[in-house]
């Protein structure tokens, strides 16, 4: 089992570091949102792997909370993330009709 622990830890650590590189470099807010979602998935994977390898269920409620938190976080950031590139006809709320007004 030690081999499994070391392998999983190394893979997840590399994944988290590469994701942090993308969060730092951006370039846009949406890139950072996507990368933050991946970082949260990596954290969930790490907590779950730790629970599995040590055979305890203490962190399972935390996984539920993290799954909910990732959804609420990314949706609420993206909801206000749309910057109109060419005027006030693009707000974050509109659907097809506001897109259609664009040249």
């Amino acid at each position: 089992m030690t081999v499994v622990v070391v392998t999983v830890a190394a893979l997840l650590l590399a994944a988290a570091l590469l994701t942090l590189v993308r969060i730092v470099r951006g370039p846009s807010l949406l890139d950072r949102v996507v990368a933050t979602d991946v970082l949260l998935a990596v954290i969930v994977a790490a907590l779950g792997a730790e629970a599995a390898l040590n055979r305890h269920a203490t962190t399972l409620p935390i996984l539920v909370v993290l799954a909910i938190l990732g959804f609420v976080g990314s949706v609420s950031v993206v909801r206000f993330a749309v910057r109109p590139p060419d005027g006030p006809d693009t707000d974050a709320r509109g659907g097809r009709e506001t897109v259609g007004e664009r040249p």
């Binding site: 999983v8 893979l11 997840l12 994944a15 570091l17 993308r22 996507v34 991946v38 990596v42 599995a52």
Partner: peptide, 19 residues
């Protein structure tokens, strides 16, 4: 163990793709 390692590998693949 196989499931855990495959899941961690997918996380690494996604991180490489993100970069």
């Amino acid at each position: 163990a196989v499931c855990l390692i495959t899941g961690a590998l997918l996380s690494l693949i996604a991180a490489i793709g993100l970069v």
